[in-house]
Design a protein around this nucleic acid. Structure first.
Lengths: 200, 200
DNA sequence: CACTCAACTTGACACTGACAAGATTGCCTC
DNA sequence: GAGGCAATCTTGTCAGTGTCAAGTTGAGTG
């Protein structure tokens, strides 16, 4: 496992190569695993270091802080969300993709909306968030406002609130009974159609 | 200085080094303050003890754990939410009250929906949650389904998702621009009317 | 080869949650 | 009123954590 890059990283006595090779990514994925399991609060940098097989202070070099690590995760999440949303054709599809993103990347999603854990002023984070925000706004304008004179900003807030609330409640296991055995995406589609009735 | 509140080191009869009087409530309110300021993750039992003027292990007697404290907060929150929702006349009003609750009790709200921080099997918590859930269900049935044959369970999920998402985004300061200077409750009323159009 | 610099380690400090055992006090009973 | 009991709170301690400072390694560059 550690011999994937034999020539560069192999070390003799201690068995631990000094240069991990891709420690940043290793710690990120380990963190995503841990967060998906126990939430962002239970995260331990030292535990991540142990999982990656490095010393306890190694993560600090790539992400300065605990907040730095979480900020990097949030930024990555907003980036992923932006590309996902940009591929949506209409607003309903954007909402479905929003919910799907939350289910497929629960760790990212949780961290993205936990402001007190993040370095909110971080440049990488704010730009990624702006990208996602733009993608959402674009999806809102793509919905045909035929026959319904709703303020597009209001429509955006409505769509975002519905998708965000549904996704959040889903991740928190608060929607067990009502959803039953149905596919969550299909359930959300029905909710979205309740919001934006195509004038029927 | 020791007339009404003698120093903590004082062990005179008028002081209260022991038997704080209402330590449980004091720690709860201190915790709510701290959570509203820094989120549940930054909570420190020792800091709460310091604020209450007791020793570092005092909280453990009332709430066994950190999880125990947060569970008590969540249970209290669900209780408050239940009484608030029960006073709603229709579903829109229930949603407005839901959002208002989140804004007036942000600490409660955050903790209520942070399952990984709670003792999910706790009896007090589950009963309080059931109360709130019943109140919501009742509000859903109170909406006149005239002309709209939507499944009531689906309508409940829709209303809950919209209110929960709006409240969550609001608390996370993600709705600054769109809402502008408008009253959040009024904005939500518009969203709710988008969902449950009263056929004009 | 010497230099440089990023990646990583070692060591230390203050802080935290949790547990155990002791101290104090209100209250209940006689 | 005296004695005892149980709840309440304290003190002491331990392992674990985040973060900083300083040292070590190794790979690339001139």
């Amino acid at each position: 496992m550690s011999s994937s890059k034999p020539s560069a990283t192999e070390k003799g006595p201690s068995g631990r190569p000094y240069h991990h090779g891709d420690l940043r990514r290793a710690i990120l994925t380990a963190a995503l695993d841990a967060i998906a399991a126990d939430g962002p609060s239970g995260l331990s940098l030292r535990d991540l270091a142990r999982r990656a097989g490095v010393s306890h202070a190694a993560p600090a070099h790539h992400f300065k802080d605990r907040a730095g690590l979480l900020t990097a995760i949030a930024a990555e999440g907003f980036g992923l969300l932006a590309t996902t949303l940009r591929a949506a054709t209409d607003l309903e599809e954007a909402g479905v993709r929003y919910v799907r993103f939350a289910r497929e990347h629960p760790a990212h999603f949780q961290v993205m909306f936990a402001p007190e854990l993040l370095r909110t002023g971080d440049l990488e984070l704010t730009t990624a968030r702006a990208l996602a925000s733009d993608a959402l706004r674009e999806a809102v304008t793509a919905v045909p406002p035929e026959g319904r004179g709703t303020d597009p900003r209001l429509a955006g807030v409505a769509a975002w609130s519905l998708a965000h609330g549904f996704a959040t409640l889903l991740l928190g296991h608060n929607l067990e009974d009502p959803v039953g055995g149905q596919d969550p995406e299909e359930v959300f589609r029905k909710l979205a159609r309740m919001l934006f009735r195509h004038s029927g």
